[in-house]
């Protein structure tokens, strides 16, 4: 029974409707969580003794960095499932997640830079975390540009899946080599995440912001996957019926 259900939801036509029903919930949840998270970041979390108010940047920087890594892993899992079981929908999900993941990687980069300027005195420091974030951003760009360079959807799905899997295997290797490189060329002294005294409120704030980003990502990815489904299935009868109803 459950198998039948799973297949039913894995059909793009069914999922199109289902995703449409889920989007508002996640969007509202994300807005509420962002409001709470921002309230904690600015009004509950006290000023840091060492870094002053500038440390508040971590409330957006760290969740964005977490999300960019997390989305890459989720994307690779979807891609792997799509490759192994030949499910079109999971490949589309991977494709829908990539731009948002790249966006979060980018946000993590420039917020890190805005934090680094007052703390380190320069806009960019080649520290291990920022550098691997940059490389993660490159990996996203590679995935996106490979998929958009291939016109045939089936090949594009599968090629993207393979490069995502290769990337996810390489991420730890890249991270550790960058770390090694960084310790040899002496690391930066202040860390973005080395928690000062009030670790609890800080952690709570970062976690809530991270969940807010996650629900945002779900809503956006579902929205995008609906567009991808429509584009791919534009010749199917259910799409023309849908358009007929919309009139």
């Amino acid at each position: 029974m459950s198998k039948i259900n799973l297949y039913k939801f894995a059909s793009p036509a069914t999922f199109y409707g289902l995703a449409g029903q889920m989007i508002p919930g996640f969007a509202v949840l994300s807005a509420i969580l962002f409001a709470i998270g921002l309230y904690i970041s600015f009004f509950v979390a006290p000023t840091d003794a060492q870094q002053g108010e500038a440390y508040r940047i971590i409330f957006i920087h760290v969740p964005a960095a977490w999300m960019s890594m997390f989305i890459y892993v989720v994307m690779a899992v979807y891609a792997g499932v799509g490759l192994a079981f030949n499910t079109r929908l999971s490949a589309m999900m991977a494709q829908a997640l990539a731009p948002t993941g790249a966006l979060f990687a980018f946000i993590a980069l420039f917020t890190g830079s805005f934090w680094g300027k007052p703390m380190w005195g320069t806009w960019w420091v080649w520290d291990a975390r920022l550098t691997s974030q940059l490389i993660l951003f490159f990996l996203y760009i590679g995935f996106i540009s490979l998929q958009s360079a291939i016109d045939d959807p089936r090949r594009s799905d599968r090629a993207g899946a393979l490069i995502a899997l290769v990337g996810v295997i390489n991420v730890p290797i890249i991270y550790f080599s960058v770390k090694w490189w960084n310790t040899l060329h002496q690391g930066a002294s202040i860390s973005l995440t080395k928690a000062p005294s009030m670790a609890h409120t800080m952690l709570a704030g970062m976690l809530i912001m991270a969940v807010a980003c996650w629900t945002y990502t779900i809503a956006v990815a579902l929205f995008r996957v609906r567009l991808i489904i429509l584009e791919r299935e534009r010749h199917a009868t259910w799409v023309s019926e849908l358009l007929e109803d919309a009139k």
Binding site: L38, T47, G52, E53, A54, R56, I57, I60, H61, A64, L103, F106, I107, F110, T111, F114, W115, K117, P118, Y216
Partner: peptide, 20 residues
């Protein structure tokens, strides 16, 4: 004023949400 870090803090948050 953000304790003198207004530019950095508000740019970070502002740009992030702008991009979203």
């Amino acid at each position: 004023h953000m304790g003198g870090y207004a530019f950095y803090v508000w740019s970070s948050f502002g740009l992030s949400f702008l991009f979203l």
